[in-house]
């Protein structure tokens, strides 16, 4: 189900949070709202869910204007960053909550909840309580709870931010494959560009309550619309007066380019960072692969030539 957001405005007091925000989230896509904290992305997500009022503009779900519709009638699955587990209820009761609210027959609820718990690999945890679960398990429980109502749209607020790096990485891959499997239109909010690039098939980059750029991850990464997007999506360095990606530079011992002195070589595994100072400019850095660095065998203090890769 597609989501149309038309000229949305929101402010807290005199502080504008969203200014003239418009976007169409295509049916079945996994879109990431990416931006620094305070860019208005979480507020936007709550406005779509009906958990935050809209000052101006319209929220349209599959052609239907829901701007004034209370959250409970929108049939939208919403997951908070802290997963908001119902601590007083068991895992089973958590997932069953939306179905009980819809007054489904008990046998149907049991069947649905059992299937969902299997789907999120929590089948053995049905009678546990949220405090007995790890962060990753709580997140999967929250997902199952949101999916139980067969939502038209799934909204995830910073779904991986509270997890440690390894669990977060596993869950990202899992959420992505689950979303592909279910085909449910999903919008997730994140401040982590790597996360957005990895999970989403569409990225909306926000800053100060406005859209900076929208597109496929590789497209916005390779063709950033402005310096904000470029520096937000990945590392940059200044070469010949322009902002460039450090892996778009190469270093040689001969040929054309800017001559510089190697100041430092930092080996990070696959990536090797080289810090170099051109004779007439400020220091810059560039990224080489492990093999490239091995072949060049750069020494600190030696003179090299730096140029853009073709």
């Amino acid at each position: 189900m597609s989501i149309s957001l038309e000229h949305l405005y929101k402010s807290y007091g005199r502080e504008p949070v969203l200014e003239d925000f418009s976007d169409v989230v295509p049916d079945g896509s996994l879109t990431a709202l990416l931006g620094p904290s305070g860019s208005g992305k979480s507020t936007l997500l709550k406005m779509i869910a009906g958990l935050e009022s809209v000052d101006q503009g319209r929220v349209i779900l599959h052609g239907r204007d829901v701007t004034a519709l209370p959250a409970r009638h929108r049939n939208i699955g919403f997951c908070f960053q802290d997963y908001a587990p119902f601590y007083q209820l068991s895992v089973f009761e958590n997932v069953a909550y939306g179905l009980k609210t819809r007054k489904m027959p008990a046998a149907h609820i049991t069947k649905e909840v059992t299937e969902l718990l299997e789907l999120v690999h929590l089948g053995a945890f049905a009678s546990r309580y949220p405090r007995q679960l790890s962060g990753g398990q709580r997140q999967r429980m929250a997902l199952a709870r949101a999916l139980a109502i067969k939502p038209d749209v799934l909204l995830l607020d910073e779904p991986f931010a509270a997890l440690d790096a390894q669990v977060g990485a596993e869950l990202r891959a899992w959420v992505r494959s689950l979303q592909h499997e279910l085909g449910i239109t999903t919008l997730l909010v994140t401040h982590n560009q790597a996360e957005a690039m990895e999970v989403a098939d569409r990225v909306v980059i926000m800053n100060h309550g406005r859209i900076e750029q929208v597109g496929v991850p590789s497209e916005v990464y390779d063709h950033p619309a402005n310096d904000f997007v470029r520096s937000f999506l990945g590392p940059t360095t200044t070469f010949a007066g322009a902002s460039v990606r450090p892996h778009n530079l190469e270093v040689t011992r001969s040929g054309e380019g800017v001559s510089a002195v190697v100041r430092d070589v930092i080996r990070l595994g696959f990536e090797v960072r080289v810090v170099a100072a051109p004779a007439d400019g400020e220091a810059l850095w560039l990224q080489l692969t492990h093999d490239e660095a091995q072949q060049l065998n750069l020494q600190v203090g030696e003179n090299v030539t730096i140029r853009r890769r073709n």
Binding site: K46, G50, L51, R72, F78, C79, F80, D82, Y97, A146
Partner: peptide, 11 residues
Amino acid sequence: NQEQTAASLGA
């Protein structure tokens, strides 16, 4: 957050 989640689930 718990209350808002419950609202999104239809309560």
